[in-house]
Design a protein around this nucleic acid. Structure first.
Ligand SMILES: [Mn+2]
Ligand SMILES: [Mn+2]
Ligand SMILES: [Zn+2]
Ligand SMILES: [Zn+2]
Lengths: 149, 149
DNA sequence: ATTACGAATTAGAATAATTCTAAATTTTGA
DNA sequence: TCAAAATTTAGAATTATTCTAATTCGTAAT
């Protein structure tokens, strides 16, 4: 098992030829590297544009294919805000997403220590959760004072 | 302020001519009535088909317009699961949504008493949340025993 | 090396939910 | 009653994503 949590300028060729049962092709490496390179939450098209810089021949269809492969093998998360186009996140830690309505930018938000779903929701007994998505929208904090003088 | 929380076979003509600053036209009444009639989470097209039964001339564009008007005036909530088509929910109480992967059906899920967002998430100081959407997916509970003998 | 085969990539077409446009209708209220 | 504004409507447009079918690639056997 490889640590994919680093943030330091990943080189696609550092990835082994198979991760979590997924063959790492040149294109999949590139897409994964693009996602690990910046901790933002790019759309498929963003990923396509960034991938093209280093791999001029990659196609948008391939980017979609790669993202779907990476997501289904849990190497990357798909993030949705309402009906906007999907975004992709390489942060595998337990977290959710906040979108600043000013900038449209998405920020990772973590749970406080020890918070578990069953602690906060009333779920029918035996319910088995496969997927959880928490999406917040609003305005980003002005550190301390809120009013404009 | 009108109680829209009842569940008893609503008659569109019972609604006043304006709610929350929104003029209640014949079509908007009908769409709202459709949503209040069943506590499921229909798509725009579902709403269209149901509305057509009582109002043969209503158009899909109008259903979209009405839903958007009702949502923006907080008479109805829009519910999204990943990239599926939007669904609409007349339950204005604080709740989130669980989709049973077997049936595709969506169920309302409420929070345990007194649970507040700030209690469970680490948010930058001053962050102001306008919208919150929690979507769960998984398998519905087998009442008591989980194992099959 | 050559070949064969399955997997992956690709360009472009297709899909489908939603939004837009512009004309017709309805409602409002002077 | 009449003009202005709002709403509805049919159909076209949009656009993110998926699909199709052809090509290329990677691997392993010969
Ligand atoms: Mn899954
Ligand atoms: Mn809002
Ligand atoms: Zn994230
Ligand atoms: Zn609901």
């Amino acid at each position: 098992m490889i640590s994919l949590e680093q943030n330091t300028n990943p080189d696609p060729s550092d990835f082994p030829s198979e991760i979590e049962g997924l063959r790492m092709t040149k294109q999949r490496r590139e897409v994964l590297a693009v996602l690990l390179a910046e901790r933002d939450h790019p759309t498929a098209n963003d990923v396509f544009l960034r991938s093209q810089q280093r791999m001029a021949t990659i196609s948008l269809a391939t980017v979609y294919n790669c993202l779907e492969a990476l997501v289904s093998h849990n190497l990357v998360r798909q993030v949705n805000f309402e009906r906007e186009s999907s975004r992709y996140c390489p942060n595998l830690a337990d977290h959710c997403h906040f979108q600043d309505e000013e900038s449209g930018k998405i920020h990772d938000v973590v749970f406080k220590d020890g918070v578990k779903l069953e602690d906060i929701l009333v779920l029918p007994q035996g319910t088995d959760i496969n997927h959880l998505e928490i999406s917040l929208k609003g305005h980003f904090g002005q550190s301390k004072n809120h009013k404009t003088p």
